[in-house]
Simulated assay, not measured.
Amino acid sequence: MTALRDGYDALLLDLDGTLYQGPQEIPGAREALAAGEQSCYYVTNNASRRPGEVAEHLTELGFDADESTVVTSSQTAARLLAENVAPGSPVLIVGTEALADEIRHVGLRPVRSFEDAPAAVVQGHSPATDWAILAEATLAIRAGAVWVAANLDTTLPTERGLVLGNGSMVAALRTATSREPLVAGKPAAPLMEDAMRRSKCVRPLVVGDRLDTDIEGANNVGLDSLLVLTGVSTAVDVLRAAPEQRPTYLASELDALNRPAEESLIGEDNRWSVEFDGSDLVIEPTSESAAPVDSAALLRAVTAGAWKFPDFSRITSTTPTVSAVVSGWGA
């Protein structure tokens, strides 16, 4: 059997919502990755922790990781700043000390006040971000400082559910300054480009749980992608996905990497008929069967139809088992 992963020389893996939720591993993720030989690089938009801390967390959960295989948006943000301001320049930090460390590593000087005349502002997620530091950043940006955002994630998955992410804080500064930041993290290209350089891969597969970051980020640099439904994006999100956010493969869990690629490829499936009646997508099985409906397989088939007819209103079926699965998607 040729597994999906066998067509690629490296896996560029998201973390939150893909491998773990907060402090807990997503069930089966560790075993799924351990079953293959490809190099794994952990590519995260979260700029709040040092790469070594991320690697330590992954190792504690049983994943094979070290600092060299962790690629963070804070590292990429620091690179962008080093390319845009003079060596030794003061950079106002809106974020954690881990982010400040990355700024030091590229020869820039972290500061926390507008009075230090910052040449740039860098903004990453921190649960301690408050009005005071946002006010300092507003003053600096309005005075002409280069502004780099680690990412624009509006939400952040936790074990308690979705909470506001760095993008929500970036929106506050955007409103206050009428400026747009340079963006390091997914879906912008710089982070993914850094991951590709670090891994020295020729044909990597991007794996993640968010259409608007992981999948769009893969598409922006021309890479294939696998969306797993273990985190933020839902079945309805996939069905309504804009062209730039459409994954190559879709699966309910990470072990799809170890099954044949065609099982996860989004496309028509001869087990179901998907027709557009001018308003709705009508789904019917092509043969009578008592077998349970495979929700993920059905979703892949319906998604192919939904992308072909994006203006559909509803998804319907006269077959009770199919209708029950579709209603569970909330479509």
Rank of each mutant, 00 (worst) to 15 (best):
M1Y: 07
D6Y: 10
D9E: 06
L11G: 00
L12C: 03
L13K: 00
D14I: 01
D16Y: 00
T18E: 01
Q21F: 00
P23F: 11
P23V: 05
P23G: 02
E25I: 07
R30W: 02
E31L: 02
A32I: 07
L33V: 04
E37Q: 08
Q38R: 14
C40A: 15
Y41K: 05
N46L: 07
S48T: 07
S48A: 15
R50G: 08
T59M: 00
T59Y: 09
E60K: 15
F63E: 04
E67P: 15
T69V: 03
V71L: 13
T72M: 07
T72C: 08
S73C: 12
Q75H: 11
A86K: 10
P90M: 10
P90T: 03
G95S: 08
G95N: 12
T96G: 15
A98Y: 13
E102G: 14
R109Y: 14
P110K: 11
R112G: 13
S113N: 15
D116W: 12
G124A: 09
P127H: 01
A128R: 14
T129M: 12
D130S: 15
W131I: 07
L134N: 03
L134F: 10
A137W: 09
A137I: 03
L139A: 14
A143G: 13
G144L: 08
A145H: 05
V146Y: 13
W147R: 15
V148F: 05
A149F: 00
D153G: 09
D153C: 11
T158Q: 05
E159L: 12
E159Y: 00
L162D: 05
G165K: 00
G165F: 02
G167Q: 01
S168N: 11
M169H: 09
V170R: 01
A172Y: 08
A172T: 09
L173A: 09
R174H: 08
T175G: 06
A176I: 09
R179N: 03
E180V: 03
P181V: 04
P187E: 01
P187R: 02
M192C: 00
E193F: 02
K200E: 11
R203D: 15
L205N: 04
V206P: 00
V207E: 02
D209F: 02
L211H: 05
E216W: 05
A218M: 10
N220F: 05
G222S: 02
V228W: 02
G231Q: 04
V232F: 05
V232D: 06
T234Q: 08
A241C: 12
A241T: 01
A242W: 08
A242R: 15
A242I: 10
E244Y: 01
P247Y: 00
P247C: 06
Y249I: 04
Y249L: 03
A251S: 14
L254H: 07
A256G: 10
L257A: 09
N258M: 06
R259G: 14
A261C: 04
E262M: 11
S264V: 10
S264Y: 05
I266G: 04
R271H: 15
V274D: 02
E275Q: 13
F276T: 07
G278C: 06
D280E: 06
V282N: 07
S289L: 02
P292K: 11
D294I: 09
A301P: 13
V302Y: 12
G305C: 04
P310M: 07
D311I: 06
P320Q: 06
S323D: 04
S323Y: 02
A324T: 11
S327M: 06
G328C: 10
G328R: 09
G330K: 08
G330C: 05
